[in-house]
Design a protein around this nucleic acid. Structure first.
Lengths: 193, 193
DNA sequence: ACAGTATGTCTACGAGCGTAGACTTGGAGG
DNA sequence: CCTCCAAGTCTACGCTCGTAGACATACTGT
């Protein structure tokens, strides 16, 4: 087991959770193995099941953990007058090459081929991101506009981090920000029928 | 083996290719099994390897086959004056619930957790979609704008077909079209510095 | 100091995966 | 008609996966 830690249940649980988060973000639900996750936490595979019951329950714990954290959609950001600009800046920064801070989306995207994982992701995305964003939008069609905003966030993540399309992955962040801002602006501003 | 066909190499090859396309689109590269693909083609698993060498080579064949087909980015569409509207309409129609006509993106998205599959997908996307679209755009930053367009296409696919976010999956197609069109317009129109 | 329990490990299982080689069978040409 | 090669199948391999139960060990309360 890990050197620094000896027989600390809470710390072990956290270590497994953190390792699972990294592995799921990198390889998706199916791609990440319990043994690999355990090794990343400095324990054996069985500890995963001891602490979380099963791999599926582990994923649910990871996703719940992530959703509890602040995100692009914090209240502070949602109420700011320059929300579009903030959102563009955060999205570009967060999806830069070599980093995976927005694990929530990434895990779900990588895991979406697994039926069960997709379901867990959909519930969490809808409950946290989509509901919050919809509530923050004024005007008609707020649910659809919120959905499209999330779709764009997801798409940028996919192309920059999963596919690694060079034109986006290696683009000048300022350029991307300037291109994305008016798009966000367009979806954020009230739509009256 | 299949009833209607008896000992026809070309037909068997096509059947395997078509079945693989369905399976890869549904479950991704890792999720789809060779036995399942073979069964969908009415043959045994070994035929897959006999005809395509390996599962990886089969994926490459499927992707190449898909890329050779006409897509949103046909020359006719690219040159049309109302390209943004066309693109929005096609995207919405193509990602409606229950259908998976744009297998190319979908397979790649579902398979992106597999390192090798992501590489195959990136090459094909860049060579076909991104290059074509970039060339069709006037003005500055055409590569970045093309990349963002593809990102939005990917994002809408992800949210509607993979995640199945209800607000998008069950939305009125006309509403989505109207929301997407100005966004595409914005990225398509020349950007001069 | 010692017992008891929480913590962690070891070995192993059944299943599914991609793949390989030997075998069988159908169907067309002489 | 009969032969022979393409077309397809069968059995099985080595591997990895998630999971289970029995076992070992370190900490803690008394």
């Amino acid at each position: 087991m890990a050197e620094g830690r000896r027989r600390d249940a809470a710390a072990t649980r956290s270590a497994i959770l953190a390792s699972a988060r990294r592995s799921f973000a990198r390889s998706g639900y199916d791609g990440a193995g319990v043994r690999e996750i355990a090794e990343g936490a400095g324990v054996t595979a069985m500890m995963v099941n001891r602490y979380f019951g099963s791999k599926e329950r582990l994923l649910a714990a990871v996703v719940a953990d992530i959703m509890a954290e602040p995100s692009i959609l914090t209240a502070a950001n949602l109420e700011a007058p320059d929300f579009a600009a903030r959102m563009a800046a955060i999205l570009v920064d967060i999806t830069r090459a070599g980093t995976t801070p927005l694990d929530g989306f990434l895990i779900m995207l990588h895991s979406a081929s697994s039926e069960r994982a997709a379901e867990i992701g959909r519930e969490q995305i809808e409950a946290h991101y989509h509901r919050t964003l919809t509530a923050a939008l004024d005007g008609d069609l707020s649910a659809e506009r919120a959905g499209l905003l999330l779709a764009i966030v997801a798409g940028v993540q996919v192309m920059r981090q999963m596919i690694g399309l060079p034109a986006l992955a290696h683009a000048d962040p300022d350029v991307l920000r300037e291109l994305l801002e008016p798009i966000f602006e367009q979806l954020l501003k009230p739509k009256d029928s």
